[in-house]
Amino acid sequence: MLQLLLTGIKNSANINIENKLSSTLLKLILLSVLVIWTLGFLQPNLFLQNDSLTNYFFTKVYSKVCHQESSKCILIGIEHMLVCARCAGIYFGALIAALFTFFYCIPELRIKVFVIASLPLLLDVCLTFLGVYTYSQTVAFITGLAFGGIVYVFFLSELENFFSNKSIK
């Protein structure tokens, strides 16, 4: 009986360690992807040499995920970012959340939190589209930041569940 109990405890401890390891690995992979993606759209601002090939390549890659309208892209120094302020906010939000998840345990988030985080972004999109007020890069960036952070947390928690279920099986 005692032997059985001990084996059970040992197995659950092994599963816990395995889950923690896979979770950290997952977080590291996601963080790396986000860092590479962020460096990509900051390419004109960070790497100032005028290399037409890299410029063309990065512009083409990000043109598939953003309209890249120069008036809506944040200007750093003399160059614009390769994505608009809203997209930059979303990616930076996800990046900040990715860093935070290493130091803080993510609590179980409710849908209400997701709605609250995405409502400002949706309102900003609708109101600027309808012409209620003019587009502001700051507002777009901040609303994107909140949305990106929450989306990342939901994304990570679902993937963690997925991998922990797999390891239990």
Binding site: R110, I111, F114, F154, F155, S157, E158, N161
Partner: peptide, 14 residues
């Protein structure tokens, strides 16, 4: 797909 699954599952549990 992943984010929507997380949201819909939370909604169902609720």
């Amino acid at each position: 797909g992943v984010v929507a699954t997380a949201i819909i599952n939370k909604r169902n549990i609720k």
